[in-house]
Amino acid sequence: MNWLLVVAGAMAGAPLRYLTDRAVQSRLGPALPWGTFAVNVAGSLVLGLLTGAAAAGAAGPRLQLLLGTGLCGALTTYSTFSYETLRLAEKGAVRYAAVNVAASVAAGLGAAFAGAELARAVWA
């Protein structure tokens, strides 16, 4: 049952990442990897919120497997983030590569803290 929850969440999260990336790229262009940035920050916010809810007793282990390990885990990605950064550096856009790493880490971490704070405000 636990495995099925993870698979179900991931089978929604991974295509959601793909479609979000395409939608964002068609609007902002492929120069900077904004699509991956967007899903990573959004997923970090939701996982922070969910983990906070679980700590407050408002979310059970099943919901954590479905939405946390499955959905947020597959919605966000480190491999594409790294590869896109490498591509920027290989193209000579070293400054953009550095900005991508710094902005993704800062915004992702900020989103995780914001999610946890929000959970505390709502459920604790």
């Binding site: 991931a10 996982l47 947020c72 885990g73 491999s79 971490l109 995780a112 803290f113 999610g115 946890a116």
Partner: peptide
């Protein structure tokens, strides 16, 4: 590429757990 790169590797690696792991450790 969609199956293995975007799907398998994208689903295997995770940014959200990385961020929330750090947040929980600091908290």
């Amino acid at each position: 590429r969609p199956f293995f790169g975007t799907g398998v590797l994208g689903g295997f690696t995770t940014f959200s757990t990385y961020a929330v792991d750090i947040q929980r450790l600091i908290d």
